[in-house]
Amino acid sequence: MIRSAAALLLLLVLSAPARAGEAEAIAAYQSGDYAVALRELPPLAESGNALAQTVLGYMYANGQGVPPDAATAVKWFRLAALQGSADAQHNLGYLYDAGQGVPKDYAEAGQWYRLAAEQGRADSQYNLGVLLEEGGNGLAQDYAEAALWYGRAAGQGDAYAQHALALLHAAGRGVPRDDAAALAWFRRAADQGHAPAQYSVGVAYNTGRGVVADDAEAAKWFRRAADQGYAPAQANLGLLYDHGQGVEQNDEEATRWFALAAAQGEPHAQNSLGIQYKNGYGVARDYVQAYLWMHLAAQQGHPDAMKNLGELATRMSADEIAEAQRLAASWRRR
């Protein structure tokens, strides 16, 4: 599951009252004058100023004015986190989560995320939920507690958490299975432009889970996610065009969407694109290209691709198969 895109965040709020030099240091940082910030921040940080410690940690973590140095970032974040800075707690949790500057340790990451989450940070609540849902690396899996933290972040409008909570409702993990509740959370995230949630809304309408099946509505939501480059949605939109479900049947459009998803490595789309090339649907018939895409799908374990390859091979020469395999090897090395 994707973690919050905002992994390392700063919410720069000056202490009240601001300490001498603090406002100048933060203003320099915010304006991109890292040389001045690096002159002003260390004395403040050494004197125990948690905001200065947090900003220094952020600068070292991201290489702003200094070479990236995750270990030094950990040092400064830890000092600020121990003083209760939610920013520092979140960022320190992320570094343990990612194994940057410290060994990867989900239990330690969870402790720091939890401290920030308890202060109301939605991104920390979400990331803690992810760790609890996945488990491992020193942290016990706990779907029920994951759902609790996703719920708190979702209630604050976090689209990642809304989607994650919806998935738990759809699977009945940590919460009772409830397709209607799942769809409601999918919709809240989808309405914020979250592509995986838009895809999930499309799946719900396509399959009739939690709502009356409606292929036209499914196509609408698949398209929204597909237009953002989300490969599973591109693959499913291609299938709707291929079958004429919810949209007018169009081989060229089907092939176009299959190709976009296949280029991102989506195995169902790769197999479907191979079929298009094999039959000349929406594209000129080309057995080499057909074999290439089916071969790539088969190597990812697609259940139908290997069977399709075997049938296709009976129509091809040894040289054509060798060329397709060469193209597949080249594609994988990209």
Rank of each mutant, 00 (worst) to 15 (best):
L79A: 06
T255K: 03
A98V: 10
Q156K: 12
V283Y: 10
A159H: 05
R188I: 03
S47N: 11
D304G: 13
L132Y: 00
A226E: 04
A144K: 15
W331C: 02
G172V: 07
R285C: 04
Y281K: 09
D242C: 08
L51F: 11
Q192T: 01
R332N: 13
G129C: 04
L95N: 00
A18G: 03
A86Y: 04
A219C: 04
W76D: 00
W149N: 10
A159S: 11
E323H: 14
R78D: 13
A324P: 07
A153H: 01
L239K: 09
D105C: 09
A109P: 05
A180I: 05
G57W: 01
R315F: 09
S15P: 05
A6E: 14
F222S: 01
A23S: 15
G280V: 10
W257Y: 15
R209Y: 06
V102R: 03
G208N: 14
M1Y: 15
R223Y: 05
G84W: 05
Y287D: 04
Y96E: 11
S200K: 03
H243L: 13
A195C: 10
Y150W: 05
I321H: 08
Y287L: 07
G135I: 08
A27D: 08
H243K: 15
Y281L: 07
E46G: 11
E22M: 10
Y143P: 01
V66G: 11
A189Q: 11
D227N: 07
P42W: 10
F186E: 00
A81F: 03
P303A: 09
E118Q: 14
A190Q: 00
